[in-house]
Amino acid sequence: MRFLRSRFLQAVAIFVLAFVVLRFGIRPPAPWSVLSLYMFIITLALLIFVSSDRDSWRDFVRPIWLTLTDPRYRGLRSVIVVLVPLLFGYYAYTQAAAKPQGPPELRAVHPAPPASIQFRGKEINISGVENPLRKDAAAFGKHVAAGHDTYIRNCVYCHGDNLDGKGHFAYGFNPPPANFQDPGTIAMLQEAYLFWRIAKGGPGLPKESTPWNSVMPAWEERLTEEQIWQVIMFLYDFTGQQPRRWEAGEHASH
């Protein structure tokens, strides 16, 4: 098992292992952009690993040096001389060949909300506003029930009866409807943010959420202000998430 102690083989083995784990170990597969970022970092770390002291570096370089210079490895050398340009050629081909696929998109998961929106001719502040219905704790149950009703009538088709974004129509849409059960969605946001998203829908998304292919309707024409706040309460109540609160001092003048 002497070859296992060779730094060169160790480095190659770690690299391959890391690639296999990251490529096939993560389900669903990580996007290519993230995977290549990871592999870049691992390559950097491996270079540090093999060169962090002189012995290790010598150990790492020796097989490479031998392959390139030693007469015994003439055959291997010829193979490499042929293979490397071919690999480059293949890489160039994969980069240049047209693929039946749209270019990668960069879509902001949580785009920046406007400071205020026009809701049926009335200005509603998004920055710093609280859910007005939460003030009356006695009516909490009533509002949640009403929100439930509104949800089932309007939202369930896409966002699903389990609020997990798997409604009947969900599979036809890209991007798919939001999954409220995911702690990365509504739990990270203030209720006012949800109000904005529900009222303005896909057409109201700002620049960074291009391309504007979200099919979320703008509900401001169909739901009242109260109904939207109720449905928001229902979303949090049903999923057991807590809305993000405003920090003190966030009701800034600007």
Binding site: I26, P28, P31, L106, N174, P176
Partner: peptide
């Protein structure tokens, strides 16, 4: 270095079920 908003192609987004990766999203 794991991005919150990932660069994804259409197919990858479909496989992930959205632009939000269920595991790497964490």
């Amino acid at each position: 270095a794991t991005p919150r908003s990932m660069v994804v192609t259409l197919d990858e987004a479909r496989a992930m079920g959205g632009t939000h990766h269920p595991l790497l999203g964490f």
